[in-house]
Design a protein around this nucleic acid. Structure first.
Length: 579
RNA sequence: GCAUCCGUAGCUCAAUUGGAUAGAGCUUCUGACUUCGGAUCAGAAGGUUGGGGGUUCAAGUCCCUCCGGAUGCACCA
């Protein structure tokens, strides 16, 4: 049995409360780390809320619950403080036991959920026939990190890339492909050529209505199943897919499914027919609309599910997709939850989507979450563009990250051979980009800064990776005889205790990050962990210390390295032994 | 006009069911090197959390209002 102390405390608190209040009504009694170590290791403020709801004296309730708490095995006597806080102080033996278990590989301060859920995560979603750009990075990195966290916690995660492979852009692309295609350029760089064609025709459409009309007709033919157009479309999709896979491989991102918009086209008519039959959708100005008179937020924002020209739009496609997923897709498992990771501007769309679906299938017990995020801005707070005003290509961005990281590594560590430096630069560069994004509250707009993300100070990937390499260096230097330590942990120095206490909270933070879809909690935790380690490292010699201290300190180093590696790994960031 | 989101130190950002003294990094200043990797650590300075009102034992967080900004709002996705 793993000793996960905060879980034990929560359990015991629950038991004590039900003894005192005589019922199990106490929903979630959370125990969390104290904001200030002087109060203790863990606290709960839940009793104050509980007392309030029952019109009881909070301090008295806290005292009564404290009297029934059966935790002497792990804690010093509990204190009632302030308006009704309970403060817990761990016994050194409990701390030592948890660390010993972790050092022995029995756990890493977290446990898998007792209630695994099936969660579908929809993220990245680039448009076919266009290069992936910086706008896709947040969705991709955030979605991947969430998938990894949920999987680590034992959930059944299905990732699905809803590629934009059926939009109106294909009308223009078909016109371009048929009249301006340069086979040489297509061979050399298919995406660039398709982008060139699209831009060319798009510009022509501005000035020449005839070209626009041609594009419309090509689109209609494609959607009607014209063989020639379908063949060209498939070719374009295949070329795009190759590019996507290359970028995803570089980022270390994998999808279980990539069912694009086109996959759902055969289902769209039925969606609208059903909505119409059930009176949920009504005709208006030739289009089909769903109104939400009873929802104040959406009262003035009806959703369109069919255009006046008879065509369907993205709400229709998303409804079909949602139904398909809820019914178990091709994987035959009904999800408990579906998560969409997209930008903030789509909030209204998802509110409409979810509202329509709830009416359409009110029997569906599935949690629908729109995990939205802010924009990536350039320095100065304006949209992030290249000097010439173009959107930044994702591949160029990754290249530049590695180049910049290589310069730093080469300057700091010129002794390493070129191949090693290249590999370190890859890990550090990609890690820096991912971490800079994930470390931020996703809902804020994010100011992209090379200097900040590659800095060795502050809450950055290089700082964390450096902490990791310092630990690994100890074990390298100590030789093969040096393991993660043995025997009982004897924690004495304040830096040892602070590090140990912080290690214990890894699981709590993983849970919080998963619960709120916010990897920045985990980043914050890892940054603090690296800080605690740095202070420990500064003040507590490991290899040079005497045998008694040495075993404990080696153990702390080992466990810290494992939490760092696991924590970064679950953010999609690799580690490196040297840098 | 309607809706959503945001406003925290000079700058970039945190702040876990509303919780105890709002925290980091950068910048500035001051310290610690015969380094288990100094790509480090310690200390100082920096705040009326946009303004005002309200709820609460407790508000950056919830409610109202005003100011300022971003985004979206029927035939693009």
């Amino acid at each position: 049995m793993a000793t996960l102390l905060h879980k034990i405390l929560e359990q015991k608190l629950q038991e004590a409360v039900s003894i005192v209040l005589g019922d199990a009504g106490a929903a979630a009694l959370l125990v969390r780390p104290c904001p200030d170590p002087k109060f203790g290791d863990y606290q709960t403020n839940a009793l104050m809320a509980l007392a309030k709801a029952r019109k009881m004296n909070p301090r008295q309730l806290a005292a009564e619950v404290a009297a029934k708490l059966d935790i002497a095995q792990w804690c010093e006597p509990v204190e009632v403080a302030g308006a009704g806080f309970l403060n817990f102080r761990l016994k050194p033996s409990a701390l030592a036991q948890a660390l010993r278990e972790a050092a022995d590989g029995r756990h890493l301060f977290f446990q898998k959920t007792s209630e695994p859920r099936c969660v579908i995560i929809d993220f990245s979603s680039p448009n076919a026939a266009k290069p992936m750009h910086v706008g896709h990075i947040r969705s991709t990195i955030l979605g991947d990190a969430l998938a990894r966290v949920l999987r680590l916690l034992g959930h059944h995660v299905i990732t699905d890339n809803h590629i934009g492979d059926w939009g109106t852009q294909f009308g223009k692309l078909l016109v371009g492909w048929k009249s301006h295609l340069d086979p040489e350029r297509l061979r050399a760089n298919p995406i660039e050529e398709m982008e060139r064609l699209y831009k060319l025709v798009n510009a022509q459409c501005e000035s020449d209505p005839q070209v626009l009309e041609n594009a419309r007709q090509e689109l209609v033919k494609l959607q009607a199943g014209d063989e020639e157009n379908l063949r060209l479309w498939r070719e374009m999709i295949a070329l795009s897919q190759t590019q996507f896979e290359w970028v995803y491989a570089r980022l270390g991102v994998k999808f279980d499914y990539s069912l694009g918009e086109s996959y759902y086209q055969p289902m769209l008519k039925k969606v609208v027919d059903e909505l119409a039959e059930r009176g949920l959708a009504q005709p208006s100005e030739g289009a089909m609309m769903v109104y939400f008179e009873d929802l104040p937020e959406l009262k003035d924002h009806p959703a369109m599910v069919r255009k006046s020209d008879g065509g369907f739009n993205y709400t229709t496609t998303d409804l079909a997709t949602l139904l398909f997923r809820w019914q178990g897709g091709t994987w035959s498992v009904r999800p408990n939850e579906i998560i969409y990771v997209t930008g903030a501007p789509q909030q209204l769309h998802f509110k409409q989507l979810f509202a329509v679906f709830r009416r359409w299938h009110s029997e569906a017990h599935v949690k629908l979450a729109h995990v939205w995020f802010g924009s990536v801005l350039g320095e100065g707070g304006k949209p992030f563009k290249t000097r010439s005003g173009e959107t930044v290509r994702l591949e160029d961005l990754l290249d530049e990250a590695e180049e910049r990281a290589l310069k730093v590594v080469s300057a700091k560590n010129p002794d390493l051979d070129q191949a090693q430096r290249g590999e370190i630069a890859r890990v550090v560069g990609l890690g820096a980009i991912k971490y800079a994004d994930l470390a931020q509250n996703r809902q804020s707009d994010y100011v992209f800064s090379w200097d900040k993300m590659l800095a060795l100070q502050g809450n950055t990937a290089p700082y964390l990776l450096y902490a990791y390499t310092r630990i690994r260096s100890i074990f390298r230097k100590g030789g093969e005889s040096v393991t993660g330590g043995e025997g009982e942990f004897v924690l004495a120095a304040p830096e040892e205790l602070a590090l140990a206490r912080h290690l214990l909270n890894f699981g709590l933070v993983l849970d919080a990050a998963a619960e709120d879809y916010r990897p920045n909690f985990l980043c914050e935790y890892l940054y603090e962990l690296a800080g605690h380690f740095a202070r420990f490292y500064e003040n507590c010699p490991v290899l040079k210390s005497e045998e008694a201290n040495r075993a404990t300190r080696l153990g702390l180093c080992d466990v810290t390295a494992r939490v760092l590696k696991q924590g970064l790994g679950v953010l999609g960031i690799e580690t490196t032994e040297q840098m």
